[in-house]
């Protein structure tokens, strides 16, 4: 309750507490500038995290759903092996359905490469079986073993082979973005602590006079806390606004899934950066408050 009140008091009424500390134009501008720069970086790290998060989720969902089995066998064995594969699939948990692609479908898949008049029956094209997964999907390694035993011509292409690293990278990138945000917040706390400490040290006489006439530590701390919190808030608000303008003017996504052009905010995520200045102010509040009380308790 007391804490809450002291947070509230930072923004309200007693401007006198502000006046007791002499103005310091230069450090004040430095503090605002740093808070602004940190907020700017935070917004970009946030945009990066959200975009890679979206990408990872989408890829993950897509590739988890389907895989393909290719059967290449001499003409006489193709039908038998297809049957065997379907039988294996029917008895494998994690598979919703499997079906042999029709000639028409296969022709359509090959058309871009070989033209529309492909004589499918005379060419040794492999037979394709499309597999739809369900739940967590089948145990891929076990499935491959069983397939090679039942149908030596079948090759399981589970897409994951090449997409898994991409999903991993995207997930890792999101994590890096979040870690960056934490680091930025930490550096801002450190920077504001240093600025507050130098302000406290520079105002030793002011603090001495205030103590002499009966000011409590809270009162003195408040004068500093108020100043640094407001500076951080204003600086971070400007930095956030600039970064959001930068993100808004990114080229629109050219195609689905394009990573670079997909960097931005979607829907309600546009509201997330608004908490950046608030967090900056909270960080400044606590950093200054701790620095002030530590400095004051060292004085006699």
């Amino acid at each position: 309750m007391d804490r809450l009140r002291s947070i509230f008091e930072v923004f309200s009424g007693d401007t006198n507490a502000d006046r007791v500390v002499p103005p310091s134009g230069f450090t004040s501008r430095l503090t605002s500038f740093t808070a602004g720069a940190m907020a700017f970086l935070t917004v970009f790290a946030l945009a990066l995290s959200l975009a890679t998060g979206r990408l990872a989720d989408r890829w993950d969902a897509e590739l988890a759903r389907t895989s393909t089995i290719r059967i290449a066998a001499p003409e006489g064995q193709l039908a038998a092996q297809s049957e065997a594969v379907l039988e294996v699939l029917r008895t494998t948990p994690g598979i919703a359905s499997a079906r042999v692609m029709s000639d028409a479908e296969q022709r359509k898949l090959l058309e871009p490469w070989f033209g529309p008049d492909l004589p499918l029956d005379t060419l040794p094209v492999p037979r394709l079986i499309e597999v739809l997964e369900e739940g967590k999907g089948p145990d891929m390694a076990g499935l491959k073993l069983r397939l090679s035993a039942e149908a030596p011509g079948a090759v399981l292409d589970d897409h994951t082979r090449w997409r898994r690293p991409l999903v991993n990278a995207a997930t890792r990138l999101r994590l890096l973005g979040l870690v960056s945000i934490l680091l930025i917040a930490g550096s801002m706390a450190a920077m504001i602590t240093l600025a507050a400490q130098s302000a406290l040290a520079a105002n030793g006489q002011v603090i001495g006079v205030l103590r002499l006439i009966g000011a409590r530590d809270v009162y003195i701390a408040r004068a500093f806390v108020r100043r640094f919190t407001l500076r951080a808030l204003i600086g971070a608000a400007i930095g956030t606004a600039l970064a959001m303008i930068g993100v808004a003017f990114m080229p629109a996504p050219a195609e689905e899934g394009a990573f670079l052009t997909g960097l931005g905010f979607v829907g309600w995520h546009w509201f997330l950066p608004i908490i950046v200045p608030v967090i900056a102010a909270v960080v400044a509040f606590w950093a200054t408050r701790l620095a002030a009380f530590r400095a004051l308790s060292r004085l006699s």
Binding site: N16, R19, P23, V209, L210, I213, G214
Partner: peptide, 17 residues
Amino acid sequence: LDHISVRDNLTLPLAVS
């Protein structure tokens, strides 16, 4: 406090309490 007037310095004890 050297940056505020004598008058404001006089009333400072009231302000801080």
